[in-house]
Amino acid sequence: MDEVLAYGGLFLSAFGAATILPIQSEIVFVGMQIADYPAWMLVLVAGVGNTLGAVVNWFLGRWIERFRDRKWFPAGGKALDRAQRWYHRYGKWSLLLSWAPFIGDPLTIVAGVMRERLLDFVILVTIAKFGRYVFLAAVTAGLIQL
């Protein structure tokens, strides 16, 4: 039961970290790896959670543009236009940066706004998100020195 709760906590932290919520999953991931949870299982759980959180952002992006001119909307029309131009310039391949702090979450929202195909989105984001956790596991295990 404790393992289920631990993995559930990792999943939720990874899921939340991929959304617009200010959550970090790395501390949970590293803590569990240090506590001898299998790295492959941590990568699987965190990667799936983080990818699904990004899918929520994609759906949010598909829905959110209708509110761009409202006063309460957090991103002004100019900011959204700038993000769309940037995404149009670099295209779907920019989703390989969806793992990155500060830019990753907005990228996944803009992909939804830009009507990126969901299958292409999921493939590229999955590569990025799983790659992030594989790298984190390797660093934590001492396989990669920073």
Rank of each mutant, 00 (worst) to 15 (best):
D2V: 15
G9L: 11
L10H: 09
L12D: 04
S13V: 11
A14S: 14
G16A: 15
G16N: 05
A18P: 07
T19G: 06
I20T: 04
I23T: 04
I27F: 13
I27A: 15
V28K: 05
F29N: 04
V30S: 10
G31C: 10
G31Q: 08
G31K: 11
M32G: 01
Y37I: 10
Y37C: 06
L44H: 13
A46W: 08
T51H: 07
G53K: 03
A54I: 03
V55D: 01
W58S: 00
F59T: 00
F59V: 00
L60W: 08
L60Q: 05
L60S: 08
I64N: 01
R66G: 03
R68N: 10
D69N: 14
R70S: 09
F73R: 03
A75Q: 12
G76S: 05
L80D: 05
D81A: 15
R82W: 08
R82H: 13
R82S: 08
A83G: 12
Y87R: 09
H88M: 14
K92D: 11
S98H: 01
I103E: 05
G104D: 11
D105S: 13
D105M: 03
L107A: 01
T108I: 02
G112S: 05
V113S: 09
V113Q: 02
V113G: 09
M114S: 14
R115K: 15
L118Q: 07
D120G: 14
V122R: 09
I127W: 02
I127H: 03
R132S: 05
Y133Q: 02
F135D: 03
L136G: 01
A141H: 12
G142P: 04
L143A: 08
I144C: 08
I144F: 09
Q145T: 14
